[in-house]
Design a protein around this nucleic acid. Structure first.
Length: 134
DNA sequence: GCCAACGTTGGC
DNA sequence: GCCAACGTTGGC
């Protein structure tokens, strides 16, 4: 089991929308590092869902429903998508401020590489976040 | 709205 | 293959 974090601007696609939809095609990723992370995802991997620009918080946990396949919004064949489904909302979203202030979480890849839209999360980080958020 | 970080592009 | 210029992202 691997753990990941994806970012989305809530004005584009919000966590609440995923709860309503039940599943989403995670398309539009146009960065090689992020794409490679998408391709490394296995079915059932757990994915933290973060709101960037507005909210600035991890909203809940999603799960990989379908592993990487060609991004339907890309005709070049370079980019990949996965399908995600919601697992659980956090009772209290975890703010970036909280993450930065937490010794175990301030080194998360996504905190250090602000622009990376799909990043990996260690098991320790994931457990810590679950404990704070659920 | 600003600007730092950083990935990409293109001339040499 | 280097690196300057440029564009984009995202926190503040």
């Amino acid at each position: 089991m691997n753990y990941w974090l994806v970012k989305s601007e809530p004005s584009v696609y919000a966590w609440d929308q995923l709860l309503k939809d039940g599943t989403v095609v995670w398309d539009g990723v146009r960065n090689y590092t992020a794409r490679n992370n998408l391709r490394a995802m296995k079915k059932g991997d757990q994915v933290l869902f973060y709101h960037s620009n507005e909210g600035l918080s991890i909203m809940g946990i999603a799960r990989v429903r379908r592993v990487a396949y060609p991004d339907p919004t890309d005709s070049s064949g370079i980019w990949s998508s996965v399908d995600l489904e919601p697992v659980q909302s956090f009772q209290q979203p975890i703010s970036l401020k909280t993450l930065k202030a937490d010794l175990l979480l301030s080194n998360m890849q996504f905190v250090k590489q602000a622009r990376l839209s799909v990043s990996s999360v260690t098991p320790d980080e994931f457990e810590r976040i679950k404990r704070i958020g659920l």
